[in-house]
């Protein structure tokens, strides 16, 4: 079966602390930190966007996989912040890694789960024998409306996975999805910031879909929480994944390595992929990993993954997620606005 043959991750180096955002709106940083389970978030540089983050992650994935970019037959980039409304980020990535022109590519959008949707698509293409290698990327430079709770969490980052059948570092044993039409979070065409349903985003959206997909894959694979060494859930804040893990019967130590939101914020389409990349950074052959993403609107994709021997020989080529997380520069709210290109120049 198809598996991951290489991956690459990218987290911008700038961070803004909850205290700094709270200072602007005269809110209590303490309440926000305990309420959202987050202390700081990543911020892209002025010259970074979803395309550059996706390209950097993709370049790292090609190096990690040890393949030629020209062997890649499909590239899908999932994001809710594609730089263009019309003009594919996937084509930018294709050019940036020196792949193509003999490949298929497209941009995907499914709120925070477009990256894992892409992963399923390339699994299908590789599994069916249509292509030898496919790349799925989740990348975002997400925006929260100033003053909104989302401003504390909406951040930037991404990860790319190359799926193939040769030199697999982690086999994808199974995948399952759970999708309904649920209006928990949306952004209309032309709107700068998303809107959301406040507390409605919890039980009927995040929890229902994550639990739905995860239970489906338990059934499908005959597994239970205790069978897994690591678990990664979509992480819009620090609390939801912690709670859903407990509700499903996972232990905090299974969640810890892939839980990044408390220190980098919600990287949206990058969130579950970055969590998985962080787990693969340390996973040993034989380890089992459960991943369940969530995208508003709403749906979840679950994956059961088993780590293979080839991971050891490729490990030194990986730029580790937690190393990137710890290599950071703090900025204040004014620099945050400059980096976000929010300072009006005309």
């Amino acid at each position: 079966m198809a598996g991951i043959v290489g991956y690459g991750a990218y987290v911008p180096r700038y961070r803004i602390k909850v205290e700094e955002i709270a200072r602007i709106w005269h809110e209590s940083a303490g309440h926000t930190k305990s309420g959202l389970g987050i202390t700081e978030k990543s911020v892209p540089a002025t010259d970074e966007d979803t395309g550059t983050i996706a390209s950097e992650a993709a370049r790292r994935a090609v190096i990690h996989a040890g393949i030629e970019a020209s062997e890649i037959g499909a590239i899908y980039v999932g994001s809710e912040s594609h730089p263009y409304a019309v003009k594919p980020t996937a084509a930018t990535v294709t050019q940036a890694i020196g792949a193509g022109p003999n490949l298929t590519a497209a941009d995907l959008e499914f709120a925070c789960k477009a990256g894992t949707a892409g992963l399923q698509m390339v699994m299908g293409l590789v599994g069916s024998g249509m292509i030898n290698y496919g790349m799925a990327i989740g990348s975002d430079t997400s925006q929260g409306r100033p003053g909104d709770a989302l401003e504390y969490t909406a951040s930037a980052g991404g990860a790319a996975f190359i799926v193939g059948k040769k030199d697999v570092i982690a086999e994808i044993i199974a995948t399952a999805s759970y999708t309904t039409d649920t209006p928990d979070f949306w952004r209309r065409e032309g709107a700068s910031f998303p809107s959301h349903g406040g507390r409605f985003t919890g039980e009927h959206a995040y929890f229902k879909h994550i639990i739905g997909a995860t239970k489906l894959i338990f059934e499908k694979t005959g597994t239970k929480p205790g069978d897994f060494d690591f678990v990664v859930f979509h992480q819009p804040n620090g609390k939801f994944p912690t709670n859903v893990a407990a509700m499903l019967g996972f232990k905090p130590e299974q969640l810890k390595q892939g839980l990044l939101t408390p220190v980098i914020g919600n990287t949206y389409s990058g969130a579950s992929p970055l969590g998985l990349a962080a787990v693969l950074d340390v996973a040993k052959p034989g380890n089992k990993i459960m991943v369940t993403s969530f995208g508003s609107g709403a749906g979840s994709d679950s994956f059961v993954i088993e780590v293979k021997d080839a991971i050891e020989s490729k490990r030194q080529r990986a730029i580790k997620v937690w190393d990137m997380i710890n290599d950071k520069t703090y900025i204040d709210y004014a620099m945050y606005l400059k980096n976000n290109r929010s300072i009006k120049m005309r």
Binding site: D47, E48, D49, G51, T52, R59, P83, Y84
Partner: peptide, 15 residues
């Protein structure tokens, strides 16, 4: 790879 320039509000992004 980074952005170099952007052509106004509606133009191309130059990487």
């Amino acid at each position: 790879l980074r952005r170099m320039t952007v052509d106004g509000e509606e133009g191309l992004i130059h990487y």
